[in-house]
Amino acid sequence: MGSDTFTQLVDANYASLYRFALSLTRNQADACDLAQQTFFIWATKGQTLRDLSKAKSWLFTTLYREFLRGRRRGARATALDDLPPAEADPPAPAVDIIAAMDAQVVMSALQEVDEVFRVPLTLFYLEELSYQEIAEALDIPAGTVMSRLSRGKVQLRAILDRREKSARDNIVAFPSQQHRRTP
């Protein structure tokens, strides 16, 4: 692969890969490392990929595998069995409230979702891969992706709702001028 093609591949995918990595690692520096490592692997091994139309899926799959490889075993994702059953249509902040939220707040809420749901959910919201491509990237059945998206959304809504309420509760009236003390 020529350097021009490689540059195009980086330009088309590095931002989405970084966002995916950020949701996984919850840390900007680690996310940068992970994105960089993914392209490093592409530069050394990706040339063997015959169908370049699958490069995007390959990159997301590789990034996720690298994340799993680098993580300590002790920090495994919460087991599905430990999670409560999904609620049906839980409360969620209104769309205009989400729209008014800072992007970092929404990312932070997403990072709080259990990893087993967060991984497909982030890929879903990045809108780069279909649910079938997500299934291939994560090596799980398509039905499992749907199930995890459903439950992941439940968690995300609940977290966003909680954050929105918390932010509302923390709003305090600005003290008027006459009540301020001067040193």
């Binding site: 490689f6 540059t7 980086v10 330009d11 590095y14 931002a15 970084y18 966002r19 950020l22 900007q28 940068c32 994105a35 960089q36 392209f39 490093f40 592409w42 530069a43 769309v95 989400i98 729209a99 939220m101 992007a103 970092q104 929404v106 990312m107 997403l110 982030t122 879903f124 919201y125 990045l126 809108e127 995300l156």
Partner: peptide, 25 residues
């Protein structure tokens, strides 16, 4: 979903990541 996806799109990689990737490769 659209609102959440738009928020993710508003997260930008740190300056220099692209160059670091290209140089690293």
């Amino acid at each position: 979903d659209t609102a959440v996806a738009a928020k993710l799109q508003a997260i930008f990689p740190p300056a220099g990541l692209r160059e670091a990737i290209l140089t690293g490769a």
